[in-house]
């Protein structure tokens, strides 16, 4: 049971990976991207978790209370910011592509492009 979070994180990671590669709808690809990144964040949080540890606010260092590792959480904050900006940029591109082609399907866009040439 201890490894449940790690296993779940990997299942989610692979799910996101698969969605990104196999779906041709761009919005689904971006959702897949977010699933994959959330999986990584889950993995990092799980690494930092200490069983029955409390939030790492240390007022008295000698109290002997166990705390969870705060570093992975701090990393994830940065990671979330990065993932939000990538998502925003990708969605912006999708809006523009939709204006040009009238579709969000990559296969459709490729077909339309090859007909144009």
């Amino acid at each position: 049971m201890d490894n449940l979070f790690y296993a779940m994180a990997f299942i989610l990671f692979l799910t996101g990976f698969w969605i990104m590669l196999s779906h041709s709808n761009l919005i689904k690809k971006i959702i897949g991207m977010n699933v994959m990144e959330s999986a990584i964040f889950l993995f990092l949080v799980a690494i930092g978790y200490v069983k029955e540890g409390s939030a790492p606010i240390i007022t008295d260092a000698s109290s002997g209370i166990t705390h969870v590792n705060p570093l992975p959480s701090a990393l994830i904050l940065t990671g979330i910011v990065v993932s939000v900006s990538v998502t925003a940029f990708a969605l912006g591109l999708v809006v523009k592509l939709y204006q040009h082609y009238g579709t969000m399907d990559v296969d459709e866009i490729t077909r339309m492009r090859s007909e144009e040439l």
Partner: peptide, 16 residues
């Protein structure tokens, strides 16, 4: 733009 989104998705896959 089509090339760019392809690039972005592949490179996010890589950095993930």
């Amino acid at each position: 733009m089509e090339a760019s989104i392809k690039y972005l998705i592949m490179s996010t896959l890589g950095s993930g």
